[in-house]
Simulated assay, not measured.
Amino acid sequence: MNEDRISIKTPEYVSLQFQVAGLGSRTAAYIIDQLILMAFNIAIVVIFLIITYGQPDILIFLDLHSYLIAIIIIGIFFINWGYFFAFEYFSGGRTPGKRAMGIRVIQENGHSITLLSSFIRNLLRIIDSLPTGYFLGIIMIFFHSKHKRIGDLVAGSIVVHERKTNRKNKLSAIEKEIQTRGLSKNDLIIDEWSLKSIKMKDWKLIQTYCNRFLQLPKNDRDELTKQIAAILFPKLGIEQEDEELENKLLIVYLILKDEWEFEL
């Protein structure tokens, strides 16, 4: 099952291939996330007890009013649900567990997961968890041809493996140029909301620019740089000083590369 592959044609008529994440990798990712949440939940309860009673004695729970226990349980539920929702939307479809296992959630059309899809997908975890121990979700993932649980079916999402790269010592020409200029992703701070405004056509635009970067005559490159910067920089909230346009575009390429270049 781990070798299952699908081909997706995006609305921009770009064909992408993905390896679908199976039950094993998704279960491992879920266990990692649950361990993180367990530690976080315990910390919340301990802090609550210390603030309220001055000591982290778990037996104090037996003496709490029922409404306080209800508030704590509801609060922990929303934190646990929000963990998956926030990480999947703001971190390119990756929770810490998914990142550790090299998998991510995307839309069925190959785009990054949307706010609505992430909301629906994680809201339906409640159903996938029935009757206990995520039983229904496991059964769905195991038997579905694309390893989808109910949340994925309704949200139109799919979990895939990250693009594998074996080029640690084989940099492309543009990567060598970026390295020579001493540029890195940390040289530009772009907020997640701005990154979400980038679409596949924008990525293909800057990818083509960087692929042709070293072959273009200086004058043509300068003109193309200004045109592409005028398209992308307003979306990303980047200022357009002429003397830094090339370097900024190359840094944007590095940042978007992690998000968009995941074809197998």
Rank of each mutant, 00 (worst) to 15 (best):
E3T: 15
E3C: 12
I8R: 02
I8D: 01
K9R: 15
Y13W: 14
V14R: 02
V14C: 04
L16G: 00
L16T: 00
Q19S: 09
A21F: 00
G22M: 05
S25A: 15
A28V: 11
A29W: 00
A29V: 03
I36S: 02
L37Y: 07
F40C: 12
I42C: 11
I44G: 02
V45Y: 05
V45R: 03
F48R: 03
T52Q: 12
D57W: 11
H65N: 15
A70E: 10
I73V: 15
G75Q: 11
N80L: 08
N80R: 10
G82V: 13
F85G: 00
Y89V: 03
G92L: 01
T95A: 07
K98C: 04
R104A: 03
I106M: 04
Q107W: 03
Q107D: 09
E108G: 08
H111E: 14
H111Y: 12
H111Q: 13
S112N: 12
I113R: 00
T114K: 11
S118W: 02
N122I: 05
R125V: 07
I126D: 09
I127K: 05
I127E: 05
T132S: 12
F135N: 10
F135G: 07
L136P: 01
I141H: 01
F143A: 11
F143E: 11
K146A: 05
H147D: 02
K148N: 05
R149W: 04
A155P: 03
G156P: 02
S157P: 04
V159L: 04
V159N: 00
K164Y: 10
T165C: 07
N169M: 14
N169W: 15
K170L: 14
I174G: 00
E177P: 01
T180D: 11
L183P: 00
I190V: 13
I190R: 02
I190M: 06
K196F: 09
K196L: 10
K201H: 13
Q207G: 06
T208A: 13
Y209C: 03
Q215P: 01
L224Y: 08
K226S: 15
Q227I: 14
F233Y: 08
P234F: 05
K235C: 03
E239A: 15
E241T: 13
D242W: 08
E243A: 11
E244S: 11
E244Y: 10
L245I: 09
L249V: 08
L249F: 06
L250G: 00
I251Y: 00
V252K: 00
Y253I: 05
Y253F: 15
K257M: 07
D258V: 07
E263V: 10
E263M: 09
